[in-house]
């Protein structure tokens, strides 16, 4: 694990998965949906929750808890964060969206070999918030699934 303190200001969207708090770059966030009907797609990986109809557009929704192997899998997810990854809209199921936060000196970059999708940590008002790179997480999970599922 390596650390580097940064002072570049930026905004993040924070949300909860169980008791833990996470953040993503607000720049990639398109919108936040409340409770919505998710339609399952058979034979897809566990972490791919299904699809939603977003004003006539079909968007895949991923179960973020399952993707980062959180033990707390209680089905209390109430929000879907829609982000844009490589020009495609993608949804991530979270327990609760908390706030948009401006970050200055509170951010420390991190590299964790076993969880390379965690890019840093934010420490603010006694809160420890992990900063996620959703694109890295998604690419890693999908590649592992395709390789495991096909060549297994």
């Amino acid at each position: 694990m390596t650390f580097k303190i940064t002072h570049e200001p930026f905004d993040v969207l924070t949300f909860k998965l169980g008791e833990k708090e996470y953040a993503i770059d607000v720049g990639i966030t398109e919108m936040i949906l409340g409770k919505c009907k998710i339609f399952k797609v058979p034979n897809s990986p566990d972490f791919l929750k299904g699809i939603v109809n977003l004003r006539g557009e079909i968007i895949p929704v991923f179960d973020l808890k399952s993707m980062i192997n959180l033990e707390d899998r209680e089905n209390s997810c109430s929000n879907v964060i829609i982000v844009k990854i490589d020009a495609d809209k993608t949804g991530f199921l979270v327990d609760e969206v908390t706030e948009i936060m401006s970050i200055r000196s509170e951010f420390t970059t991190m590299k964790i070999v076993s969880a390379n999708y965690i890019k840093g940590a934010i420490i603010k008002q006694n809160r420890l918030i992990s900063f996620l790179d959703l694109q890295d997480l998604l690419v890693g999970k999908m590649s592992a699934f395709e390789l495991g599922g096909k060549v297994g």
Partner: peptide, 27 residues
Amino acid sequence: VKTLGKIFKNAKEFCGGAILQDDSIAL
């Protein structure tokens, strides 16, 4: 019928998602 997108490139059993009148989706 709408595209399911790149994520479902291996879901060959389906050729899209049908948006129904009640806004639900039928694969």
